[in-house]
Amino acid sequence: MTARIERIVTSGQFTLDGGSWDVENNVWIVGDDHEAVVIDAAHDAEAIAAAVGDRRLTAIVCTHAHNDHVNAAPALADLTGASIWLHRDDLPLWQMTHPDRDPDEHLTDGQVIEAAGADLTVLHTPGHAPGAVCLHDPGLGVVFTGDTLFQGGPGATGRSYSHFPTIIDSIRDRLLTLPPETKVLTGHGEATTIGAEAPHLEEWIARGH
């Protein structure tokens, strides 16, 4: 059975560098009728668990460790028995939110996470955060970009642990090389495609962040 992709939107706060902002996050569920993975367990573990239903949740994959993307991960893991996966370079950010609970597994560039007909290849795309990753599934024609690439440009780089030239390199070298029809499923807001964003790279560089 081919994997399907579901989105739920949860609300909460993003907190970093002494500020807090109200946000709505996309939580992605990839799987079939029997098992699934969750990408970015944001804000509401019970709502995410309800969306997963009686399927076996095999992994909670974190695109990066800003609190609004990981704050529900331990509770969701406790509810479902799933393992939490995070790139090692984002451990300092993770520990700001969860000082007493480490991720279960570390994501590595090129790793493939298999889930119910999906094959999610991990692309390490630092810039928004040091351990930011995107997840590309050629078979489904999608890339989950977290906060690395949005409709209209790169993720924010004005706060701690972020770096604008690095996110531009990640987008240019790891994402814009994907097929132009690849659907970009983001951490916030609406989807786009690689082909829709690629022509604007030089504008983003000129604009800077």
Rank of each mutant, 00 (worst) to 15 (best):
D33F: 12
A196F: 07
A129N: 04
G139D: 15
L175F: 02
G152L: 07
A50Q: 14
I168G: 01
I113M: 09
R174C: 05
E190H: 14
G12K: 08
H136F: 15
P154G: 06
R88A: 14
R88I: 15
H64N: 13
E114I: 10
R101C: 08
D173I: 02
D54E: 15
N67W: 00
P92R: 09
A77H: 04
A42R: 03
W94L: 07
A191E: 14
A191C: 12
T125Y: 01
S160K: 13
A45W: 01
I171P: 00
A51V: 13
L149W: 00
T15P: 00
G187V: 04
I205W: 06
L91G: 05
E203Q: 15
P165R: 08
S11P: 06
D90L: 09
C134G: 04
V70K: 04
D54P: 05
G187W: 03
E35D: 14
H124F: 04
E24I: 13
L149M: 01
D68F: 13
V70R: 05
T177P: 03
F14A: 12
A198P: 08
W28D: 00
W94D: 01
Y161D: 08
L107Y: 05
R7L: 14
I60A: 03
L76N: 06
A191Y: 11
H66N: 13
W28A: 01
S20F: 12
G81C: 09
D102W: 12
G110A: 08
I113R: 00
E24L: 12
D40E: 09
V70I: 15
A47M: 06
G131L: 12
H128L: 09
D54H: 14
T166R: 14
V61S: 03
F144D: 02
L57G: 05
D68T: 12
H200L: 11
A75N: 06
D169Y: 10
P180T: 11
A118N: 04
T145A: 04
G53S: 12
L140K: 02
T148K: 02
T177I: 15
P103A: 01
G189V: 08
A196N: 11
V37I: 14
G131C: 11
V133C: 10
V27Y: 05
G141F: 05
G195V: 00
H188D: 08
A36G: 06
E190G: 13
P179E: 07
L91Y: 09
V112F: 00
D44A: 10
H209M: 15
G53R: 12
T108Y: 02
L120A: 09
V52G: 00
V30F: 09
A116D: 06
W85M: 11
A191M: 13
A73S: 15
I194C: 07
G127H: 01
G158N: 14
H136C: 09
A51D: 10
N71G: 03
S20M: 13
V112E: 04
G208F: 09
H69A: 11
P199S: 07
D90T: 09
A156M: 15
A49Y: 03
F164M: 10
G146K: 02
F164G: 03
G158D: 15
L149G: 00
P165M: 09
Y161F: 15
T10F: 00
A116R: 03
G155F: 04
R101D: 04
A45P: 03
E202W: 09
R55E: 02
G31N: 10
